[in-house]
Amino acid sequence: MPTEETAPPVTAFMLIKTRPEWLAMTPRERMDAFATEIVPAIKAKTTGVRSRFYDTEFYSTRVTDVWVWEADDHEAYQLLIDALRETPFWDRYFDVVDLLVGTENGYARTYGFEPVATVTT
């Protein structure tokens, strides 16, 4: 039985910079705001998205954090962005400096090659 090929997930590297309103909150207030204002909006608007956070303020003044999103498809990603724009995350707590969106190993799928990756042991 042939397997159905699925579209690759969409990966977005969201480069953000904290704003004074976010930094003025205590760490507990930040986590509470995130849990009560941002996460519920995301859950209400979309499914099939996952995220990871990276702190970069130690090395960059232009971008303080990178939020990596993986969405099952382009529609889930678009719904995610719409949801975030309706929360204080967007332009109140953070400036979105840039969005770098792609799919992993797109070149390999396009040309029928095995993906190239490095592995160290």
Score class of each variant (00 low, 15 high):
42 I>G: 02
1 M>C: 06
62 R>W: 02
98 D>L: 04
29 E>V: 07
97 V>K: 11
11 T>C: 05
8 P>W: 09
93 Y>K: 04
75 E>A: 15
77 Y>C: 02
18 T>F: 03
114 E>Q: 10
56 T>D: 02
86 E>C: 03
69 W>Y: 10
43 K>R: 15
17 K>Y: 03
101 V>T: 11
92 R>A: 04
18 T>V: 08
89 F>G: 00
53 F>L: 11
85 R>D: 04
48 G>K: 14
67 W>F: 11
56 T>I: 07
22 W>Y: 09
85 R>H: 12
71 A>K: 02
33 A>Y: 06
40 P>M: 10
116 V>D: 00
74 H>I: 09
81 I>L: 14
52 R>W: 15
93 Y>W: 14
34 F>Q: 03
30 R>K: 09
61 T>F: 06
118 T>F: 13
98 D>M: 08
110 T>N: 03
51 S>V: 12
45 K>Y: 07
109 R>I: 11
85 R>L: 06
86 E>G: 15
120 T>A: 12
30 R>I: 05
106 G>L: 12
27 P>G: 10
47 T>W: 04
12 A>W: 01
19 R>E: 06
33 A>P: 00
107 Y>C: 00
87 T>D: 04
1 M>L: 07
107 Y>A: 09
23 L>H: 02
17 K>V: 02
121 T>K: 12
104 E>D: 13
39 V>I: 15
20 P>L: 03
9 P>W: 11
51 S>L: 12
1 M>N: 05
15 L>I: 00
104 E>S: 05
86 E>Q: 15
31 M>W: 11
6 T>V: 14
44 A>F: 07
73 D>C: 08
50 R>Y: 10
49 V>K: 05
106 G>T: 11
45 K>I: 00
32 D>H: 10
88 P>V: 08
20 P>M: 02
24 A>T: 03
49 V>Q: 11
72 D>T: 14
111 Y>P: 00
46 T>L: 11
119 V>A: 10
64 T>P: 01
93 Y>T: 00
91 D>G: 01
32 D>K: 13
41 A>S: 12
26 T>A: 04
101 V>M: 06
118 T>R: 08
87 T>L: 10
121 T>Q: 11
108 A>L: 06
112 G>M: 04
29 E>Q: 15
96 V>R: 01
8 P>D: 13
36 T>V: 07
96 V>A: 07
28 R>K: 14
30 R>M: 07
